[in-house]
Design a protein around this nucleic acid. Sequence first.
DNA 1: CGCACTCTTGACCGCACTCAACGTTGGTGG
DNA 2: CCACCAACGTTGAGTGCGGTCAAGAGTGCG
Lengths: 239, 239
Amino acid sequence: MSLDEWKPGGAGCAKALCEECEVRGLSVCGALRSTELPALAAIASGRRLEPGQTLFHEGDPAEDVFTVTGGALKLFKLMSDGRRQITGYLLPGDFLGLAYGSTYVFGAEAISGTTLCRFPRRQFLRLLDEFPALEHELLGRASSELAAAQEQMLLLGRKTARERVASFVLQLAGRVGSEHDASLALPLNRTDIADYLGLTIETVSRTFTLLRKEGLIGLPDKQQVRLLAREALQEAAGI
Amino acid sequence: MSLDEWKPGGAGCAKALCEECEVRGLSVCGALRSTELPALAAIASGRRLEPGQTLFHEGDPAEDVFTVTGGALKLFKLMSDGRRQITGYLLPGDFLGLAYGSTYVFGAEAISGTTLCRFPRRQFLRLLDEFPALEHELLGRASSELAAAQEQMLLLGRKTARERVASFVLQLAGRVGSEHDASLALPLNRTDIADYLGLTIETVSRTFTLLRKEGLIGLPDKQQVRLLAREALQEAAGI
DNA sequence: CGCACTCTTGACCGCACTCAACGTTGGTGG
DNA sequence: CCACCAACGTTGAGTGCGGTCAAGAGTGCG
């Protein structure tokens, strides 16, 4: 990816000082005071990715870190024969770039139209020395991600298809903060859900249908889910 | 667990200043200078766990963080019906306590006889403010753990039994730094390997036998593995 | 010697995968 | 406007990998 695709000024939204960025409260940047933000803004550049566009591949030199300002990204690992495991998905405010040494250990691809704030890794690491609050914030996020990763390992290693799908719906509801009985927008299509849950697309489809017939969820359309019985869904998730 | 089981002085080995601790170079403590160590030693206490003894359960209030100074620990999550997923195992030098909020999100249990260095969480967090190098070291370790967790998600979600066992043997070899053709001590028994790889004990046993018959590994006894064909094993691991 | 525990091996089963067909939707162009 | 096509999702039929159940081998300990 050529550098000139990135526009200076953070989030590609002309908010040069990050002050007005709508995800500031959600993102790592929220750990900095207003007086410290300019140092971050100085190294930021913004970009928009179209659906399906690749941010980087596994194995690429890890030269940048990112904050998601809009849309959604999926992270994944590939095997040589094409098998794929989606290891996570990122929503606005999420930080990307913790888990690597000198190269990215996973690929990242836009799901919907996505906007990002990019920081050159070296310069970002220098800022960590300058602002311990930023490093502290990152450590907190890394802890949460590790906890989520362990939950996902339990899901992938031990849960049945029904338990996996129920867990996924509940996890999604927790992440986007749904109101009671509201519809949730699914950030992933069936293929991606399958690769996230370690199943096939057919099994995901069948299981959605099963949970719908059981009255636990509603499926108003292909991109939405409705939680109809949270308690029962938690039971189905295997607690 | 009552506090008086913990003996002041770090690692339960009377090395009050951590200076002579044999895992200092491997552990987070290595990030501190000699002049800074006493501050860490002042809040450290040591303990020994016998095989099978529990350090803490999932859901316990997370009051301490630990460094493993000897032996081995397994981390695991349980489902209400007894299904178990081992999410990782710790060897000397490893740090324990990153992945939680106010309560531990996994259980921890000694595999072999294990010695630990314990730090009260609050006091440890205060030291992080004082010594940014310590926080930096923890963030680096969290990154590595996240990378390992994603690799494990690929294994659990997409690999066959043969690929899982081959991956496990190679991962173990990388972690204990085996010499060529040397025997590796298995830190986990068959039941634990099964719960780590998302398989049953029978499948693990059958797959070890299969890899032995294929000439990829040797099984001198139940607690050792020998890498006989590293290249072929990497091929079998699914790369 | 008996008992408990771990590991291995065999026979059978079932859940999720594979293969296949069909339905639905949205975009494109005649 | 409809015909066509591609992408995505759903559903059905049959299969196979790994799970379940069961028996037996090996080992250590009282």
